[in-house]
Amino acid sequence: MSIAIETRGLTKRFGGLVALDGVDLQAAAGETLGIIGVNGAGKTTLMNCICGLYRPDGGDVFISGERVTGQPPHVVAHKGIGRTFQVPRVFRKMSLIDNLLVPVLDHRASDAELTERAEGMLARMQLIDLRHNYAEELSGGQQKLLEMARMLMPDPPIVMLDEPFAGVHPVLCKFMIERIEEMSGAGKAVLLISHDLTSIYRLSTRVVALNQGKVIAEGGVDDIRGNPAVIEAYLGT
């Protein structure tokens, strides 16, 4: 399988705090890479460095073999990367339809075609009846679904999901898990951050464990489950 996304020695510092310390990882098309770690381990910082929101202090990011380190986020996005956020960052005063159109504004398809695609995506996420509402009028769980739909609109080959199950009802959680399985089934490389280890273990092909900005373990689900370093980082024993 071809490598969709790769980081080599990725380092990010905030003053004296080393948030990422030489992180190497790679994910192939169709693979779901779970990223776990306690609060402050550097998971979200890793995503922010990959998508260009933070400029790394060292190391490189490659998307489909192309180096994108230090490129502005809108350029990185056009390389085929989509993401969601730990706390939903929907466009609050825009309708659901318009939220979905934002990532495809520079596409050549007509407005009618894009709107039709957006409506199809909202129907898939069971949000179609609310399509003319403002995003701020949705519940937290619905905003997570909206973000997921928005991320999928340009059909990016790489998706990054930051805590998609945080604060989500179990029924909705199950629905989201099915959507994530569809993504990897469709050949997308999925980077999944979650504190919910059950979901991570169910969805991931491989898992990377971070602690204090470093990769402390990497491997299959069974390898990570029994890894002493991971157990110590999580349980402190």
Partner: peptide, 24 residues
């Protein structure tokens, strides 16, 4: 217009808009 949608997205969350591919 698409420019108007891009402007409103930027107004609501500039970082998120930029990560959606908008040249803010």
């Amino acid at each position: 217009s698409r420019l108007g949608k891009a402007l409103r997205a930027t107004r609501d969350d500039a970082d998120a808009a930029e990560m959606m591919g908008i040249n803010v």
